[in-house]
Amino acid sequence: MNPALQAIRQPNGDLLIPAETAHLLELVLERLQEEVDNMHGKTFAEPGAMETDRETANRQDSVDKLSAAMGIDGHSVSPRRRPDTHQLVDSTETRELLKAVSSLLFDRA
């Protein structure tokens, strides 16, 4: 992507955007909108965190008690990772914001 000229802020707050920069901005917004649309409704997995020391100690306590009740020597447990959590991507709000910005800048939805 070629560097474009920066927009100029006027003393009254108006923003003057050079034509080349406006065109680049339009392309970037379109591409961003496509990317957000493509992600919408997809599933992503967030890796599970490691269990806390307390959780590991509680599991060890359970193993020790169960082993003692059965009259056998228990084994040592080690910290383990919690399961991954899966979520759907909901980009509805982001999509609406992108449409609003495009509409404001380029008079279209």
Rank of each mutant, 00 (worst) to 15 (best):
V36T: 08
I17W: 07
K99H: 12
L104Y: 11
D107I: 03
L97D: 02
A68T: 05
L24T: 01
V36C: 01
L24V: 06
L32T: 13
N2A: 15
S91F: 04
K99R: 14
R81S: 07
R81Q: 15
A109S: 10
L32M: 13
S91Q: 11
Q6S: 09
H75N: 09
V36S: 04
E34A: 10
R81D: 01
M1N: 12
R95W: 00
V28D: 11
G74W: 06
E35N: 09
E93R: 11
T43K: 14
L32H: 02
P18C: 02
A68G: 04
M50Q: 08
E93M: 03
E35D: 08
K42F: 00
L25F: 06
G71K: 12
D53H: 03
A7W: 13
I8N: 03
V36K: 09
L104T: 03
Q6R: 14
L104V: 11
A4R: 15
F106G: 00
Q33N: 11
L88Q: 15
A109Y: 14
P83E: 11
N38G: 07
Q10L: 14
E34P: 04
T21R: 07
T21N: 12
L88S: 14
M1G: 12
A22M: 12
I8R: 13
A45H: 13
A22K: 15
H40Q: 05
D64N: 15
M70Q: 12
R31T: 15
T21S: 15
E55L: 07
Q33A: 07
G41W: 10
A49R: 11
V63W: 10
H86P: 06
R81G: 01
V89G: 02
P18D: 04
L98M: 01
G74E: 00
E51N: 07
R59L: 04
P11R: 08
D61Y: 11
K42Y: 01
D14Y: 07
G71S: 05
I72F: 13
G48M: 00
L97N: 02
V77Q: 10
K42E: 02
D61N: 14
Q10M: 15
E34I: 04
R95Y: 00
D53Q: 13
L27H: 09
D64V: 02
L27Y: 01
R59E: 07
H40N: 10
S62L: 11
N2L: 12
G48K: 10
P83Y: 00
D107Y: 02
L24M: 08
T94C: 08
M1D: 05
S76M: 03
I8C: 02
P79Q: 14
L98R: 08
N58G: 00
